[in-house]
């Protein structure tokens, strides 16, 4: 029992220390962001690695999520005779929730894990140390562009996800199930607000992009520099950032759509 308590205390202290390290690390990286203005090429490379390479999985997932929404929404709405509102249902679920959240989850699996593994391996092979000895700060040269790139890439990916999803729902609803296409769009436009729904969705995905990328780069820099350590850090990135996204989503939703 005492042993168990001791272990619990130790774990709690370790977790608190990690939290502190993570924030101090973030502060140092944020201080390095202004320097990127002179090196936009570094950020562009990272947008390519995190954004462009995630495009396919995001677009395909968006399409299927939208199609499923169309199908499920139709089946429910048709029993109230309200299938004309299908567009509203699809668009609202996508802009408010599914677009930002699902694309953030996919992003953490596709791009976040890759970031952690890349940085972790650089640490394990002393590349980060070597860079430091060449008088190049890895937090500015390696981490800062990745953080910024992720924050730019995710909102764009989420917008693409949402749009593809709306068209997926449109395809299922109007082409396959016979909802009137005019009603689909007009009801959608009447009910979906730009400032409340679209903009809030973009704000959400900005926050998620920041949190997921921050988790990923921190886990990479903080990992134990062995192959086992890197693999654990990669797992932790996906688990922690997914949980953070879902938890933050609840908080943001409560703040935005009261």
């Amino acid at each position: 029992m005492i042993e168990w308590l001791r272990l619990f205390g130790e774990q709690t202290l370790a977790a608190t220390a990690r939290l502190g390290r993570g924030h101090m690390f973030l502060l140092r990286v944020l201080l390095g962001l202004p320097g990127l203005l002179r090196r936009p090429g570094l950020v562009i490379n990272q947008i390519y690695a995190t954004g462009v390479l995630s495009l396919l999985i995001i677009a395909v997932s968006g399409l299927f999520v939208g199609m499923v929404l169309g199908l499920q929404g139709y089946n429910t709405l048709v029993s109230f005779g309200a299938e004309q509102s299908l567009g509203v249902l699809v668009a609202l679920s996508l802009t408010r929730e599914l677009g930002p959240v699902v694309s953030a989850l996919l992003f953490s699996g596709r791009a976040g894990s890759a970031l952690t593994a890349e940085i972790g391996l650089m640490k394990a092979t002393e590349q980060l140390s070597g860079m430091e000895m060449m008088a190049v700060d890895p937090e500015r040269r390696i981490v800062a562009p990745r953080l910024l790139g992720g924050m730019i890439a995710l909102p764009l990916l989420a917008a693409i996800f949402t749009l593809v999803g709306v068209f997926g729902g449109y395809f299922v609803g109007t082409v396959l199930l016979g909802v009137d296409s005019g009603a689909f769009w007009s009801q959608m436009q009447a009910q979906v607000s730009f400032t409340e729904d679209v903009v809030n969705g973009v704000i959400k995905s900005l926050v998620f992009g920041f949190v997921v990328t921050w988790t990923a780069v921190f886990e990479g820099v903080d990992c134990t520099p062995t192959s086992e350590g890197v693999s654990r850090a990669t797992t932790r990135t996906v688990v922690h950032s997914s949980l953070a996204v879902l938890g933050l989503d609840f908080i943001l939703t409560a703040l935005m759509f009261d």
């Binding site: 391996l121 092979t125 002393e126 590349q127 140390s129 070597g130 000895m133 060449m134 008088a135 190049v136």
Partner: peptide, 29 residues
Amino acid sequence: YQLRKRMGMLFQSGALFTHLNCFENVAFP
């Protein structure tokens, strides 16, 4: 960091950047 510019270090593993070729590795600093 200014001081480190005047120091070179050869790591045991070499610590070359795996995503850059030899030329770019040497050109990096």
